[in-house]
Nucleic acid binder design. Sequence first.
DNA 1: GTGAAAGCGCTAACAT
DNA 2: ATGTTAGCGCTTTCAC
Lengths: 360, 360
Amino acid sequence: MAHTDRPATLRDVATAAGVHPATASRALNPGTRLLVSEETARRVSDAADRLGYRPNPVARSLRTRRSHTIGVLIPDLNNPLFPPMIRGIEDRLAEHGYVALIGNTDVDLAKERLVFDQMRARHVDGFVLATAIAGSPILAEAAESDVPVVLMNRTSQEYPFSSVSVDNEQGVRAAVAHLVALGHTRIGHIAGPQDASTGAARLRGFHAAMATHKLPVTDGQVVYASAYSLEEGARCGRDLLAPGGLTAVVAGNDMLAVGCYGAFDELGLNCPGDISVIGFNDMPFIDRLRPPLSSVRFPHYQLGTEAATLLIERIEAAESPVKILFLAPELVVRGSAVPLADAGEGAGAVPLRRAGRGRT
Amino acid sequence: MAHTDRPATLRDVATAAGVHPATASRALNPGTRLLVSEETARRVSDAADRLGYRPNPVARSLRTRRSHTIGVLIPDLNNPLFPPMIRGIEDRLAEHGYVALIGNTDVDLAKERLVFDQMRARHVDGFVLATAIAGSPILAEAAESDVPVVLMNRTSQEYPFSSVSVDNEQGVRAAVAHLVALGHTRIGHIAGPQDASTGAARLRGFHAAMATHKLPVTDGQVVYASAYSLEEGARCGRDLLAPGGLTAVVAGNDMLAVGCYGAFDELGLNCPGDISVIGFNDMPFIDRLRPPLSSVRFPHYQLGTEAATLLIERIEAAESPVKILFLAPELVVRGSAVPLADAGEGAGAVPLRRAGRGRT
DNA sequence: GTGAAAGCGCTAACAT
DNA sequence: ATGTTAGCGCTTTCAC
């Protein structure tokens, strides 16, 4: 009741507790509390409570040069891949008193640069980069200025950044192994953009897996998408399947796989009757499609929490080592890939009822 | 080349330009540039460029008590409704030099309070609230402390907040009119949570629309979902349809509508053959379901840009008036609602091919 | 264990 | 039109 409209400052608290502001500061900060007598500490924090004191983070930042804010760069928040990762980041950051600034780059280097600079201007304490296009100049700049950086869902050969990503090769291996177990041998791949590390890693995984199973990969059995988009998925699906001969497709991600569904319709192919397909990411709602898409699940949320953990480590323990963390993916079997024996059975017909209710 | 490692400060610029720091400040700030001779202004900004000067927003904030940061409270970023809105907000804010802090409340009042308090502690200049549960204490608190607030996708009868939302009643009217034009008369409604203003408004719209068409609404023709979730959609779908008699459903939103798809399967109903359904929101990917969901489209992104505009107005022009803005929804016709004459034709059968490729 | 003093980088009164 | 002065609220030397 003794407080005015103006929020209480540290000075007010000090006065109320009958100590010097410096002492009040020490008493209130976990890191310095032990420098102050127990009794004074109590008096100060009582006074703080009484006055409803809230430390001013701006003033603190000015002094300490720590904003407790981190920048997160992603291509596009509308891509359903990212919201869970962001939540993971934010939830973990919140536990440590940090907040995130989200920046969308729209896969545009100029925009990426703009957002990055703005965040630096705002003195973020570090970055989570989920947008690292290989060769993007901000990587070099970040490395040079040694602002703490963690790569999420990306890795870098060129710079010593900590990163957390999914073992993409292993995921594709699981997908191929599943198809092979179902009897497929003529398996195509729609490769994601090769300047994204996910696209390249999954393509490597595809070749490795096919080699493991001693299956040949001819020209035309791999087509390259220029973006992770429905449109590119449809285009690549057409290019891959129009020649005929393939019975299964491993798509570079779910977007490409769903785009493929459109190509199937155009080519008069029935999925999964004529052609099996497996995606990557296990996007939300992907289990609601007809047929529900089998996909390599990706622990999105954990990717975010781990990235945040790594970043905070690096911010708070200056010389913490670089860590490269891989999380294991998991194949989620639904209705879009079926045994080869079934092929042809429903050719041209409506989607099979059986395929409609895969395990989710 | 003359700069050291430490970033240049205003004082450095002033020295380099041979003026007092205050003059340099005036020269560099758009609002005060006219207080300074053209020649000095040029000299100062040249020096600034030369030194690579970047103003320190933290110091500026401490002085001006403006953080150029705004808080955005939403229930859950994972809800696909929100990413486009957030992008709208961020894109518009960026044009004005603001950034957004996103807070997820998970529809939990305690968490909402926590996030709200943290953002206030960080001295955000204003809030976009998309989470306003009727009676939430933060509304009262915000009103009292008169921090600028704009409600997004919510309205408030109790407090004088600017808001931008979709005309929900009109949207439901359009949905009902469409169904009536298709010959339906026994139309049910799955109402969203009545403590969300969208849920209440859409229910009002349903009753109004049915009255307009002189169609009776009996008990049991409206069921209430306790949340906008797939589970509640399935439950309500069962409750609504198990008794039989209805030929069409207007769902409170797309989640509820998609949940309904599950109920249809359980009850052996074929959509759209036996039962038509229309959703609300036009969520991403909703056009990829079988059948593609007819839905009332909702200009998500614009909701965000308009909310940001309103908020900035209010922040920068202290006494700008309260504005209540409604954006018009638009019915998107796809395959989940068909003429009544078709009912029964495909009863119990697999989804009709024809229904699979609605206009998107 | 506590106080004194200084200053982070900037801008707003107030002079002149 | 420009300089002077002061201070936003906090943390950190450095004394004692």
